[in-house]
Design a protein around this nucleic acid. Structure first.
Ligand code: ZN
Ligand code: ZN
Ligand code: ZN
Ligand code: ZN
Lengths: 139, 139
DNA sequence: TTATATAATGCAAATAAGTGCACCATGGGT
DNA sequence: ACCCATGGTGCACTTATTTGCATTATATAA
């Protein structure tokens, strides 16, 4: 299903370097299309396939994470510290939630379910404060 | 981003009824393609678009949930009780984890983050016991 | 510096999922 | 039973993402 990171040799790639740098420079959890648009001026013949492929490479290296936002687009981030996501279903904004609620959760589930947990993901869905303000006081 | 369930009138649809029944009859978290294949004999000119559309309708009704399995396919389930998922990255199996670990988590995050949490999703990634057995004793 | 192996890229084609539209079907009114 | 408004469906097309392949670029050794 997914190959065990078999340390295949990587070569330097300017595009991958800039892609990672770009992702590390924002906290907006951008889409692949946005990353492509931002890099296009610097690499006039960049292709979207390369963006996706480099995102995959960076994900395998553990430097980038893919976020299923619930919309039709996936989003990406380069924040490596563990955190959760607050996903606003109204405007699509993704907010990082830094507090480490349950450090022992993986071990707990591993034991309870006979399943070797290697990591987990927690996403909260709801309405962000900006959208609530815009809507008046409902919800 | 997502419309507030505005109670638009629904009509009876045999295909949607059978789709829901099929989904309720399994705990394998099937893909849209599998559902399509299973329903095709009964509805010879069923189209995949209809499957996707009916899944969306059922999701809006709260009868079905979409699961981002991390693979290239989305998966679906009709289990409405809250539970978490153990997703094996080796064979793709999704196992339900029924224990309600943190009932108060939504309220807690709502308060801490000024975000109106309406629900959450917790997924654990790792290796299932079948795969560990098959692999020998590693991991 | 040149040669060699192979990773990275661009392009186009393939997939999975979502959507517009013309037509069919359900259900409430007559 | 018939009419009609509108929801549901099939089909084809679009969108988001992945992948095959020929070409280009990186890295290492000669
Ligand atoms: Zn919002
Ligand atoms: Zn984040
Ligand atoms: Zn497995
Ligand atoms: Zn489940």
């Amino acid at each position: 299903m997914q190959q065990q990171s078999r340390a295949k040799p990587l070569r330097y790639s300017r595009q991958r370097e800039r892609l990672l740098y770009l992702l590390q420079s924002t906290d907006t959890h951008p889409t692949a299309g946005w990353l492509y648009d931002m890099l296009k001026p610097e690499f006039p013949n960049l292709s979207l396939g390369t963006v996706y492929r480099n995102l995959s490479v960076l994900i395998e290296q553990g430097l980038v994470k893919k976020i299923d936002s619930g919309s039709t687009f996936d989003r990406y981030e380069a924040k490596t510290t563990p955190h959760y996501h607050l996903i606003c279903h109204e405007c699509g904004t993704i907010i990082d939630f830094e507090e480490q609620l349950f450090p022992e959760i993986d071990a707990l589930v591993s034991k309870a379910a006979d399943f070797a947990v290697e990591g987990h993901r927690i996403d909260f869905f709801g309405t962000c404060s900006a959208c609530r303000t815009r809507n008046g006081k409902n919800s």
